[in-house]
Design a protein around this nucleic acid. Structure first.
Lengths: 190, 190, 190, 190
DNA sequence: AATGAATGAGACTTCATTCAT
DNA sequence: AATGAATGAAGTCTCATTCAT
């Protein structure tokens, strides 16, 4: 788990530069430079530039999932649990704008093809989100739509407003966030 | 407006190859090859590769908007107009999967930075969508949320399900599409 | 057959520089420079540096075989035919020292592994040399040794003296060459 | 003279890997790995990769000469002494195929330029071979050809058949070896 | 003496762009 | 207007060498 200092420096530089310049625009030389590491050293930790990008993505997604899943209110009503996850997600991405931009760019590029999934949320043994929606469907609290669509109807817009906030198309604040998450709930609740 | 045959061939090849290989993976040589045009000819119509990509994007977005806005039921109730646009949008992208993938990839890349906006829908002098939401807000039919957020809550998921359909994560059909659009309406209606 | 001017310039530069610096020492940049051609142009004619080296070798061997096989005295006694080929070979390599050094270096390197053979002489449908030795064996003019060994006993030393001459270890002249070829004949004749 | 264990391990690994991969293909990392030694340790014993290769060559040639010169039948007739050396040489290289391939590759590469000589046999204070041929020339047993050519006519083919045997182009056995060495004698005897 | 992580110069190769035809 | 051979800057990756431990 403990990642070497070098790996961290390289991944961090990769994140910054790819968000700013894209996958092709961020060259290995630039990344090495920003990480204050020799070009060759990058290849001690990553097999290739592609590998570096995929590993960076995996790392970021791991961080994000861990953050979102913390303090999950197990046992509470479905709506409450949903609102909790939504809020955590939005707060995480607002606090980590680079991470959001990287992940989105990754999933919409050929790099993301191999591991592309419903944006986020669907690996991890437990997969709390899917359980949540399953339960909601069984209890007839949610609309009868495929799980995948329920996810798209909720987390899609939440990520969307984060991006718009990050790109300064809108300015989010607490009440707007809350009301938007509730609007997402309205979209899927019966 | 009438675009020369050559331009069209080049743009079409660009669309195909960039969707399949990404911006860097699609080379000018490949595009020329697929368009059955000489490499040099591309530079008669486009200043550079970047220009080609941006022009391709502009062209595709124009096509899409024209298609979505056709038969707009001016004068009908807000909900009906909203459902109409949503359905048109989904039908267009399901029929034009490449176009969707290109536009999404474009907006999530540094190419899209210059002209990035709330995904789509916000230029065009008239901008029917904004008018629609404005009206809904005035008549207190819609939730009091910034227009930008209303757009994100509705068109975001609609594009999302199209992509999931195109990538075979889900299988859309008429009733599911209709119900999903209605769910989007539920998200924003008061 | 007619080889483009560019190909010829590149192959010629490759020959010179590899003889002088070895396979690794001769860089593509150096070759392009010496050929007065852009680096990228080399890749229009050769798939890779390896391809360039192999094609250069094939070209040189073709030249050499053509030269050696010219004026072959078909129908004359075996000894005469043998002496003819030997003399042609020695004369060719003395006149083309680079070619000899390249071919030798090639055959003794991993590059030559794929197409390595008894140094030279064994492709080409007809293969006059093998016929010559076959005939000599049948007529009991030659020692009963495997053909391969007969070749090694004769052409090996001939190439050897050429190399020694080229490297200035010895100084060949007409009579010495003739007597050496006759010595080779003595090695294999019964 | 006693070579440290480390030196021996490194030289042995160098031999193996260069025969298999060539001078450029065998990297210091690979050599260190195969020798079960740290990369840095190699530089304690050899100034550079070039130095390592040259020292390896010198070591191998020393081994070979020692082996060939053992039991030299001083005082016996020239022909007998010649046959003795030829047989020793062939037997040594058949038993040490890697050594042969390394030495040949070395002499045909720019590495061998600095210390290149008539293949082998010409340093060593006494130089038994040269004495042998000198004597043969004086006694008019051998053809009147430069010593260098006599060497090329004899040891050239002998090394040649060893290589062909090692590369499986021919299969040598005792009688064929003997007859080939005798054929070499025929080449040079008057 | 021995190690191996770190270095960075330099190699091969690609590809957007040009220009003579 | 159309072509595509030629260009060379710039990118990725390798690997001989160093040096702190």
């Amino acid at each position: 788990m403990a990642m070497s200092d070098m790996r961290k420096k390289i991944i961090s530089a990769t994140l910054d530069l790819i968000v700013e310049n894209g996958f092709q625009g961020a060259t290995i030389a630039m990344i090495a430079d920003q990480a204050r590491v020799a070009v060759g050293s990058i290849y001690l930790y990553f097999k290739s530039k592609d590998d570096l990008i995929c590993k960076t993505h995996a790392y970021l997604e791991g961080q994000m999932l861990a953050s979102v899943m913390a303090d999950y209110p197990e046992g509470r009503p479905i709506r409450e649990r949903f609102l909790h996850v939504g809020l955590k997600l939005v707060n995480y991405f607002i606090a980590s704008p680079m991470e959001l931009l990287f992940i989105e760019q990754f999933h919409n590029s050929p790099y993301g093809v191999a591991c592309r999934r419903d944006r986020i949320f669907n690996k991890e043994g437990k997969d709390i989100i899917r359980e949540l929606f399953d339960e909601g469907l069984q209890q007839q609290i949610l609309k009868e739509l495929p799980q995948q669509i329920l996810i798209t109807l909720t987390f899609g817009p939440l990520i969307g407003i984060c991006r718009n906030h990050i790109l300064h198309y809108i300015e989010l604040d607490e009440p707007i966030i809350t009301r938007t998450i509730e609007a997402c709930w309205d979209a899927i609740r019966r």
